[in-house]
Simulated assay, not measured.
Amino acid sequence: MKKYLLILGLLLAFSKPDFAQIKPDTSFYLKNDKNIYAVVISKNNNIVYQHFFNGKSDATMMNDQSLTKSVLSILIGIAIDKHCITSLDEPISRYFPQLAKDKDQRKQNITIRQIMNQASGLYHEDLNNLKDYLGKKNQSEYVLKQNMVSEPGSTFYYNNAASHLLSVILTKATGMTTFDFARKNLFDPMGITDVNWIKMNDGFYDGSGLLSLRMHTQDMVKIGGLLINNGFYGNKRLVPASWIKALLRPDNTFDTQWGFKDSKYALCWYHFTYNGTSAIYALGWGGQFLIAIPKYRAVIAVNASIADESAIMESARFTDKIFPVLYDYIRKLK
């Protein structure tokens, strides 16, 4: 009888691999991480794992930090498709005509692409004194008036202040606020109703992530799904295929010294290879991640504390310890 029950148990275990699959939250690093808030994974457009930690829930509005930039990147692609913006190589002087009077004529030739690649050469905020930048009466005007720090297009320097200009450009190009444009063309069609987006003092919605877009983690997964579904949400095309291609396979990238090992940056997204598998991801301060892995048609969204004292270590803990567990889980799922 015992032998029969043992054989039956083995048959059930091997015939139902999903039930035999070890859940990621059994990982030592996840169970003992006091700073992580949420991990949501989809595969083949279905949520296969969703867990909240440290008092958070599916109702928590998460502070997405610089994931804001990556969402804005998708909106820029939609605006180009709608002919509101001519191209990535359009000079920003079209939207800031005051640059024609600037003593540094190089500013007139800065392009949208260069801003999205963090290579505009414009002034960047002091990360050790963000209150100074955030306290300005008009952040976008202030950035444009400062001296250039490098030749446009030549040097990668992560620049929140310049990134905010993308929101200003989107608003001027579309005649709609960034938030309204996002609601009409992205959030509403995806059924994303709970969103909080804060304006800078200049009256434009934050494009830097310093004030941050706030959403539910499970809704951020939907946005990541656009990258593995060629711009479709269900049977609705929201993002042009040409823009998805540009994001997945950018013409030019810059090496970064943070995030996953050997990451490269382009158009407000990062790229890396893990165990021979290519992935694209968005990264925010403190360990906010949105990762799309086209090979497995999988998306991972992660939120964590943004406390400065734990931010760098939390991001490293995720890339080095937690992500390998999640990747292995995704890889084994059918």
Rank of each mutant, 00 (worst) to 15 (best):
L8D: 07
L248A: 10
G224K: 08
L247C: 12
T256Y: 14
I169S: 01
T256E: 15
A282W: 05
Q139P: 08
D126F: 05
S87Q: 08
M62F: 05
G225R: 07
T111C: 08
W243S: 11
W197V: 04
F28P: 01
M62I: 03
R237G: 07
Y95E: 08
T178M: 09
Y270S: 14
S208G: 10
L75S: 03
L144F: 07
H271E: 05
L210S: 14
Y233G: 09
G284C: 01
V39W: 04
A292C: 08
M215N: 03
W243Q: 09
T111R: 11
W285I: 10
H216E: 04
Y233T: 08
Q98Y: 01
L211S: 08
V149P: 00
W258I: 11
Y205P: 08
A182V: 05
L72S: 13
Y281K: 08
F260T: 11
K34P: 02
A246N: 13
F179I: 07
L166S: 03
G121S: 00
A292E: 07
F52P: 01
L122F: 07
L130F: 06
G259A: 03
K34W: 06
Y205I: 09
L213K: 00
P250W: 05
Y29F: 15
A292D: 07
S93A: 14
N138L: 03
I47V: 13
V299M: 02
L5W: 09
N129L: 02
Y133G: 00
A162G: 10
V221Q: 04
K23E: 09
F318Y: 13
A173S: 00
P24A: 07
K332H: 15
C268L: 15
N147W: 05
A38S: 14
V143Q: 01
K34T: 07
C84G: 08
R331F: 14
M61G: 04
R106W: 01
Y49Q: 03
D194H: 12
M190P: 01
L6E: 06
I312L: 15
G77R: 07
N159P: 03
G191T: 02
P24L: 10
K199Q: 12
H216T: 02
K82V: 00
D255H: 13
L122T: 05
I312G: 13
Q50Y: 01
I306M: 13
Q218Y: 13
P17K: 10
S150H: 12
Y274Q: 10
G225E: 15
D206C: 03
S57L: 03
R249A: 15
